[in-house]
């Protein structure tokens, strides 16, 4: 390489000398760090530093104004010993089913059905399905609160067709409140999932399906051998987005149930807010927030790893 450079120079040509020497052309230069510096500073200042600060706060007993009292890991212990705190995390995992598993399952079934047929107006359906994801969660919560109200449209419709046995005050029912909130999540996430999967399935070469058919693959085999592997990246994105939404859910719960009835729909984010601003237990809130963030990061790392491992 050096000899090449020398020869070009000898011939009167110009060569960009690598500033750090010995670096191959196209290899990242240190100047690259300068380019990401603004982003790093902003991220560090507004995301990373507050996160570290809240971990620091989580080691104290503090009401927000009085002197802080160091208590070590007591606040973390409370998350496991307090049945309400513990149930909040269990509810979060139940919500993952409604936010992630259900929309993904429905999405995959529809996509594998659609890919065999040409649907007219795909762009329209994609936009329509995507709308719930774009609406502000608070608005969604208000709308669904109304739909699920004791005398709301859902119960009226059920009563009208003779299903009085099923109609109930959905959000006031200890058994059905969490699934009701969860179904709202399914409704929101389903559009996003389907839009992503539709885009993904269109880029799978048609030849693969033809090859599979020539090999005598049935519908199920075709789905397993062609569609599913072809959607690997889209599924990874879907998992990251929906699992994160499920775990951090605050606005929909806050507006629809405020954790009620009883403690039936209490989730960690709601408790963080309630402990910090209502109860004045800043340390406990910070501990819960930290656990939630770490849980989210771990789950996402596992998902990302699974996505890479499959490739």
């Amino acid at each position: 390489m050096t000899s090449l450079t020398a020869r070009i120079k000898a011939a009167g040509g110009r060569v960009n000398d690598a500033p750090s020497g010995g670096r191959a052309p196209g290899e990242p230069s240190r100047i690259g760090y300068l380019y990401i510096l603004p982003a790093v500073i902003i991220y560090g200042l507004f995301v990373f530093a507050p996160f570290l600060h809240s971990i620091y706060l989580s080691l104290f007993d503090w009401d927000g104004v009085s002197p802080m009292e160091f208590v070590g890991l007591k606040n973390y212990g409370a998350i496991w010993t307090n049945p309400i705190f513990r149930s909040a995390f269990v509810h979060s995992l139940e919500l993952v089913f409604f936010y992630t598993v259900l929309p993904l399952a429905i999405g995959l079934v529809l996509v594998s059905a659609i890919q065999r047929t040409r649907v007219r107006g795909t762009a329209f359906f994609r936009t329509a399905l995507f709308i719930p994801y774009v609406i502000a969660p608070t608005v969604i919560a208000v709308i669904w609160r109304w739909i699920l109200a004791p005398k709301g449209p859902l119960n009226s419709a059920l009563d009208a067709v003779g299903l009085e046995a099923i109609s109930r005050p959905w959000l006031g029912d200890f058994t059905f409140a969490l699934p009701s909130v969860g179904m709202v999540g399914t409704w929101v996430m389903f559009g996003l999932v389907l839009a992503l999967l539709l885009a993904g399935v269109q880029k799978i070469p048609q030849e693969r399906y033809e090859a599979a058919r020539v090999d005598g693959a049935g519908r199920w085999m075709e789905f397993r051998a062609v569609t599913l592997p072809g959607l690997r990246y889209e599924i990874t994105v879907v998992l990251v987005l929906t699992v994160t939404s499920a775990l951090r859910n605050f606005d929909i719960i806050y507006v629809m149930t405020s954790g009620g009835p009883g403690y039936a729909t209490v989730v960690p984010s709601y408790l963080v807010y309630q402990q910090a601003f209502k109860v004045g237990a800043v340390g406990a809130a910070a501990a819960m927030g930290a656990v939630l963030v770490i849980l989210t990061i771990v789950v996402n790392l596992l998902v990302a790893r699974g996505g890479r491992g499959a490739s």
Partner: peptide
């Protein structure tokens, strides 16, 4: 108490619902 509102509100709903 600072937490009583929430405790009474949530526990009494459970009480009256027979939970």
């Amino acid at each position: 108490t600072p937490t009583w509102y929430d405790t009474i509100a949530k526990s009494s709903t459970a009480l009256m619902a027979g939970e």
